Simulated assay, not measured.
Amino acid sequence: MRKNTNCDLQTCFMCQLALKEWKPAIENHRKNLSVKKGEQIIKEGEPVTGVYFIYSGSVKVHKKWGEKDIIIRFATKGKIFGHRGLGVENSVYPISATALEATTFCFIEKEFFLATLRVNHELAFNLMMFYAEDLRESEEKMRNLALMSVKSRLAVAIFHLQDLFGLDEQNCISIDLSRQDLAAFTGATYETVFRTMNDLVQEQLITLIGKKIQIRDAKGLKLLTAEIP
């Protein structure tokens, strides 16, 4: 990791919601860092030291599930990660976090962040809402894993990635996601996802341009996501 002195107060989840009077304290306690693509920021099982706020780039939040590695969610500009495990004494991170691309972020130590929540009620409220949404998405993902076919889960994943990362000038989802990561996010093996992707291409629902995905028939692909009422 490399130190970075830049700070984006306009996009940081914490700085946007913190009291104006508290921001000098944040300035004194924050540590801005930069990582390269593929660099691990958090390792599952390590003691919780603090939380992270992304200024630019993106991160995959993942964990071991038996012998598999599953991606729980993605964190992008302005979002928080490393928050799981907060509030429990001598806790460890239940997840890992790895940069999907060159990423800059702010690190705030656990003790100062908890003190910030006690003082900044708007920030604490919005963090509670974030936890609620995070839990809802996790429960929905578990339901999909149990009840949906791989093809339907893959369709759900593709739309989620489009919503999160947007489209580039070629109308492709704007993230170079490896097939291994797509499989880990879908909750299936690499081989199964590879075959299913080819099926979607043959059915003219998507087009592949390198590692990028372009939705060709949004209506047809959307029908697959309605497998569960």
Rank of each mutant, 00 (worst) to 15 (best):
G82P: 01
H83S: 13
H83W: 10
H83P: 14
H83A: 12
G85D: 11
G85Y: 10
G85R: 06
G87F: 05
V88T: 15
V88H: 13
V88L: 09
N90T: 08
S91Q: 07
V92S: 10
V92A: 11
V92D: 06
Y93A: 03
Y93E: 06
Y93G: 05
Y93H: 09
I95N: 07
A97Q: 09
A97Y: 07
A97W: 07
A99E: 08
L100I: 08
E101N: 00
E101C: 07
A102W: 11
T103W: 08
T104R: 14
F105K: 02
C106G: 13
C106F: 04
I108F: 05
I108N: 02
I108M: 06
K110L: 09
K110W: 04
E111T: 14
E111R: 12
F113K: 01
L114M: 09
L114C: 01
L114Q: 06
A115N: 11
T116C: 08
T116H: 01
L117I: 01
N120Y: 00
N120Q: 02
N120S: 06
N120F: 04
H121I: 14
L123M: 02
F125E: 08
N126P: 03
N126C: 09
N126A: 01
L127T: 01
L127Y: 12
L127M: 11
M129H: 08
A132D: 12
A132I: 13
E133W: 08
D134I: 10
L135W: 12
R136F: 00
R136P: 00
E137P: 11
E137A: 11
S138T: 14
S138Y: 13
S138D: 11
E139L: 15
E140M: 12
K141R: 04
M142S: 10
R143F: 06
R143I: 11
N144Y: 10
A146H: 08
L147N: 14
M148F: 09
K151T: 05
S152H: 01
S152Y: 03
S152N: 00
S152L: 02
